[in-house]
């Protein structure tokens, strides 16, 4: 995925809908500052793989995490802006998720 003809300076993080609390990585990203589709620069706190999420803003513990306008579960701890959001800090409101290796590749 990463070797595609990406436009230089194109957003690396995608906001799918206004009001979402997470951004989606459009490529495998290293820690550090990355441009979001909102125009903001977000400092990603660790490496994040394509398709994974980082917090678009601070998310409080127990707050619903919103992607594409829909809650996808609740934060299990406080999540700072730019932090990876996954099975270690987001839980389904529906049914527990089973994952290998913390859901990482």
């Amino acid at each position: 995925m990463a070797e595609g003809p990406r436009v230089a300076g194109a957003p690396a993080l995608l906001l799918l809908a206004e009001g979402d609390s997470v951004l989606i990585a459009v490529a495998d990203l290293d820690a550090g500052p990355h441009l979001a589709s909102t125009g903001a620069t977000v400092v990603v706190t660790g490496p994040v793989a394509l398709g994974h999420k980082v917090a678009a803003r601070p998310i409080a513990a127990a707050e619903p995490v919103v992607r594409c306008g829909m809650p996808i579960g609740s934060a299990t701890e406080t999540i700072p802006t730019g932090a990876w959001v996954h099975v270690h800090n987001l839980a389904s409101d529906y049914i527990a998720t089973f994952a290998h290796r913390g859901g990482n590749r």
């Binding site: 799918l16 809908a17 989606i24 990585a25 793989a49 394509l50 398709g51 994974h52 999420k53 992607r67 594409c68 306008g69 829909m70 809650p71 996808i72 579960g73 959001v85 996954h86 099975v87 987001l90 839980a91 389904s92 409101d93 529906y94 049914i95 998720t97 089973f98 994952a99 290998h100 290796r101 859901g103 990482n104 590749r105």
Partner: peptide, 27 residues
Amino acid sequence: SFAPGNAEGGLTTLEEKSLGAYSKSGT
């Protein structure tokens, strides 16, 4: 319905997986 491979692709919860398909319906 939710396979471990889904989590490796970045999907954290069942509702997030379903959301992928659901987002075709718009708002």
